[in-house]
């Protein structure tokens, strides 16, 4: 198997041509998702209304392209209406943990010392308690609402961000340009904002996107386990748990939201990859 492996090299041009396609596809998917999240409730104002007479219609039924669930709710309408609660909470999670991560990561990386030590131990602690386990136990026991679950996830995600930003800062602070700024006696805040932050931007952006994808997955996982989203709310994770019970009479009830979660999370992950690749190309020049 390995006989010829080392000698094959890909043509460098192929990748460059393909990348915009990936990038554009991702952006289109995310654009549609954003539109559905913002205006979904206007398109289908009665998506969550129960209609027992039309329960469990199979896909392709008249007026219901993907059929209905056991409560007679149209799957298409429910999925569109569920976009907001599935995608906005995670956006807040990713944004919040990025802000916390940037702030504490800059401080820890720039001054190091004790803060640093404590933060590392905190990450160890959270590593030993997986997100879903922590979410199920804490949010489950306390009966946390949607927004409290969001806050919980910010707390759980932030230590990773702090560590990533901190590692990035530590990599930068030993570079001559930062040391020169120190020798010029510029204020630490100026060095952090004007010098470090701009150079950490690719790192932050990548990390934000990866966190966003992870948060979408984590939050729908919690919804799937009945945590964080109230019964009757339009939400993809919630749709999955409801739809699983009628998997064999209307598979679309659970497969549709499953595919939606995968597609959106994929788009976010691929966007991160594509932007990274562009960065690398720019750096190579």
């Amino acid at each position: 198997m390995t006989a010829d492996l080392l000698t094959t090299v890909a043509a460098p041009g192929v990748r460059a041509r393909r990348r915009p396609v990936t990038l554009v596809t991702c952006l289109v998917i995310l654009g549609l998702a954003l539109f559905a999240a913002l205006f979904g409730h206007l398109l289908y104002p009665s998506a969550t209304q129960v209609n027992v007479l039309q329960a469990q219609l199979p896909p392709g039924s008249p007026g219901h392209l993907l059929g209905t669930d056991q409560l007679g709710r149209d799957i298409v309408a429910l999925s569109v209406a569920g976009t907001a609660s599935t995608l906005i909470g995670p956006l807040v999670v990713a944004g919040g943990s990025m802000l916390l991560g940037t702030f504490f990561g800059l401080l820890a990386g720039f001054w190091q010392g004790k803060t640093d030590f404590l933060l590392s131990r905190l990450t160890d602690l959270l590593l030993a308690l997986p997100v879903v386990l922590l979410g199920v136990v804490v949010a489950g026991i306390f009966g946390a609402s949607y927004w409290w679950t969001t806050v919980l996830l910010i707390v759980v995600f932030a230590p990773y961000d702090i560590r990533i930003v901190r590692a990035g800062v530590i990599e930068q602070v030993t570079k001559p340009y930062v040391e020169s700024a120190r020798l010029l006696r510029l204020s630490p805040w100026r060095i952090m904002l004007r010098h470090l932050l701009v150079n950490l931007w690719p790192l932050e952006r990548t990390n934000f996107l990866l966190n966003y994808a992870n948060a979408i997955i984590a939050m729908s996982a919690l919804s799937f386990l009945g945590v964080g989203v109230q019964q009757g709310t339009a939400n993809w994770g919630r749709q999955l748990i409801d739809g699983e019970q009628i998997l064999f009479s209307n598979p679309a009830a659970s497969i549709a939201p499953a595919v939606l979660i995968i597609v959106v999370a994929c788009a976010v992950n691929l966007l991160a990859d594509a932007l990274n690749a562009d960065d690398r190309k720019a750096a190579g020049r």
Binding site: P176, Y177, E179, S180, L183, R185, L186, R194, V198, N199
Partner: peptide
């Protein structure tokens, strides 16, 4: 203070902030 000792480092490639124009770096 800044007007006592300054250093010129070895590696010219990391000596300057890559995201800052030359003019801004010197003006700073």
């Amino acid at each position: 203070t800044a007007n006592q000792i300054q250093v010129v480092f070895q590696d010219p490639y990391s000596a300057l902030n890559p995201k800052m124009r030359i003019g801004a770096a010197i003006a700073e």
